[in-house]
Design a protein around this nucleic acid. Structure first.
Lengths: 206, 206
DNA sequence: CGCAATGTAAACGCCCCGGTTCAGAAAGCG
DNA sequence: CGCTTTCTGAACCGGGGCGTTTACATTGCG
């Protein structure tokens, strides 16, 4: 089921690259195929010789972006480190992605098109929030076994932490209230998330 | 600055109603003016005699929806009640809006169009998340003065609570992973949010 | 070199959409 | 009733977008 119905050719990657940048800039409806072809320095005929239509091209871009993102977030947790350290590192990673231009754009597009492209929403969720929850959940289980944390519902705990990392930042950003938050604001959010999480789930021997 | 440049007429409300339903169903780009006119049982000429263009019609719909929402959420907090009670009530309200069909649609549209319509993002944020934060923050200050809570950063605390209410629900919903969550899932999230919040900010005399 | 595969440029057909126009119907009001 | 305001329906315009085609250039490989 990988890339059925998609012919490859010399300039395949060019097309994907160009499509990536235009879709991210303009969204699915907003992007025009002519724009993509121009951006990719490729003729429209070539583009259509690879992809049968705009939707499939879009899905292919989204898929590859989700994979990229998933792989990047894979080597981040040191299972032996204390919770306060791991949580802070995780929070920094989450926030960094969240406030990045790319993170915002992909989020916007996925939210907007999730109903027209059910597969897109699923792919993004699995390679983003869900993956994060699993990785963090695995660590939480270790730390709990160690007696460092006291958790019964690991899935909920991991999700709560991820949500706490968005406090005071994400909504303002996504609705265009403020530009990129300052380092101080970020630190305030991250510190607050870690403290609140540990207040709930930490044991004395942190 | 209310409704400048907008003529009224006999069927003004019809148009607004029809526009509301079509925009909510199809988004801004997806909605066609012909569709709206048909839905509103009004000729396109009439529609254009009220609103100079599609954008202004859209903004007017969004504005009125935001106002509606803001007013609905106004009479909810009993300042004298204990934190556990007030928090649970607030959480229930937040979750109810979040999982409602209307809440999801308006969220999707605002996220998608916030960069093309800066005013829309602002309006939604102010009459939604920001209003909630202010109302909840006001209560938190009271409860803290009473000694029931121990908070230094009230804005952050209020935001954290709102975010906690989304754990395990919002992402799955917005990306189309699950349909409406069950009552049990909702309760799990709400209970978890209240408990975590109180673990961090509650004093012994809760 | 010669030949097949691959890519190009531009035009074309088709459809949909936002917005305008106009002759005429309907509604409201004295 | 008669007059004005409001509404109608359908045609129309200009523009843009998706996807196709065609006649031609380039690449690459045996």
């Amino acid at each position: 089921m990988e890339t059925a119905k998609i012919r490859r050719g010399r300039k395949f990657d060019q097309v994907l690259l160009g499509a990536r940048s235009v879709f991210l800039r303009d969204g699915f409806e907003g992007a025009s195929v002519d724009d993509i072809a121009r951006e990719a320095r490729v003729s429209k005929a070539t583009l259509y010789s690879y992809f049968p239509d705009k939707r499939l091209l879009f899905m292919e871009v989204a898929r590859s972006e989700c994979r990229r993102q998933a792989e990047a977030a894979l080597h981040l947790i040191d299972p032996g480190a204390p919770a306060a350290v791991v949580l802070r590192a995780a929070a920094e990673h989450i926030v960094a992605f969240m406030i990045s231009d790319f993170g915002q754009r992909i989020f916007r597009i996925c939210v907007a098109e999730a109903d027209r492209f059910p597969a897109l929403g699923a792919e993004f969720y699995q390679s983003g929030p869900m993956l994060a929850r699993e990785k963090l959940g695995a660590y939480l289980r270790l730390a709990a076994a160690r007696g460092e944390l006291a958790i019964t519902d690991f899935d909920l705990a991991a999700d709560q932490f991820a949500e706490l990392c968005r406090a005071n930042i994400h909504a303002k950003l996504i609705f265009g209230i403020t530009p990129t938050p300052t380092g101080a604001e970020i630190d305030r959010t991250i510190t607050g998330a870690v403290e609140t999480f540990l207040a709930r789930y930490g044991t004395s021997r942190a």
